[in-house]
Design a protein around this nucleic acid. Structure first.
Lengths: 208, 208
DNA sequence: CCTACCGATCGGTAGG
DNA sequence: CCTACCGATCGGTAGG
């Protein structure tokens, strides 16, 4: 929350970036593999070759780790999608681009994404509220995109916008459960494949 | 695991069904709300108006609660989908029916479904393996359905079966995050809405 | 960053 | 189903 960005590295804030970031990285991995409550601070310290108590020279609390991980994931989604908002693209192309970016954020942050989807209920009320608000924002983004597409004539006029947004969000979010960065599919492959199916449908074209 | 099914209710297995089932029900609720590791046996006992230690007159361990909840969820999916396998329906209708049943299982068991998707990583290796195998089975079910539909001519011949199955599974599984049984949408509404969009596509029909 | 420690809480058991 | 308890482990701190 209180990011020490303004002050550069001086003797005053010695504990240093690098170690702090290592801690957050390893915490993200352990939280995603074992869950927040099943990860002890001693587990975390052990992975970094230090004693449990030593962590507190770099961080303030266990919950702060969770808040930071979840928040930074949310921020990445935000950045990816909201630079898209006012782009002058037809709605179907914009949808393709949005899905691609959305999946890419997940693919590039599989651990944080898993923590985000599984552990956000353990946040303090304040952080919890922020995440809930953020979810609504993403939802609204996709609904607006669909509404725009209907107005344009790109999407069917009888589309149920709420349900279509749900379907799209299901597709992109669920990727955190199965996507493997080491596999052969790029986020672009997945997004294009999904978008093709969503836009044209699974049914065989009429052969008149 | 060792289900006492063969022996009916006798004086020998006194502790009784009802109380046992209450425990499993409340455990399902608490595990879904707070997560497995954040729920203590004393929390659970408190909700049932008893002391922590008293639970062990009815159950054997905390992990057994988790195993049972996850397993019974898996079993419900199995029953819902596998009675569908050999039904002589065109693939698109079978897909509609499968999605409807899949979503209904989630809708009727929101708590178990949440535990299933979030807490299965905390299972012992044996139970973990069973759940993984089960996931593959469900995946195969949808892929076979799609393959059948292509062979029939119902689905496009150029369909990527693996990706299409992923898309369908994303849609139905993600329902556990947003569906509200008290809301106005029935599982049938959701499944039909999704199937309509998936089969025909979002794009506006050509107006020749 | 370590040693040594704090009070609290954990899952589970004994004995009734 | 309760009381009383077990050893283990938790997040976090003091003092260096």
């Amino acid at each position: 929350m209180t990011d020490p960005a303004p002050t550069p590295d001086t003797a005053a804030d010695l504990p240093a970036r690098s170690r702090r970031e290592q801690i957050y990285d390893v915490a993200g991995r352990l939280f995603s593999e074992r869950g927040y409550h099943a990860t002890s601070m001693r587990d975390l310290a052990g992975e970094l070759g230090m004693q449990g108590g030593s962590l507190y020279a770099h961080i303030s609390s266990k919950e702060d780790l969770l808040v930071e991980i979840v928040q930074s994931a949310a921020q990445q989604f935000d950045e990816a999608l909201f630079t898209l908002r006012e782009l002058p693209l037809p709605a179907d192309q914009k949808l393709r681009e949005a899905m691609q970016r959305h999946i890419r954020v997940i693919a590039d942050n599989m651990e944080s994404a898993t923590v985000f989807f599984h552990e956000w209920k353990h946040l303090s009320p304040a952080a919890y509220g922020r995440v809930t608000a953020w979810r609504d924002t993403i939802d609204t983004f996709y609904r607006d995109l669909l509404t725009q597409g209907i107005a344009e004539g790109t999407f069917r006029p009888d589309l149920d916008v709420k349900m279509a947004a749900n379907l799209i969000l299901s597709a992109v979010n669920w990727a955190y459960t199965w996507y493997r960065p080491a596999g052969s599919l790029t986020p672009r492959d997945v997004a294009e494949g999904y978008a093709d199916m969503l836009l044209a449908g699974l049914r065989s074209p009429e052969v008149p």
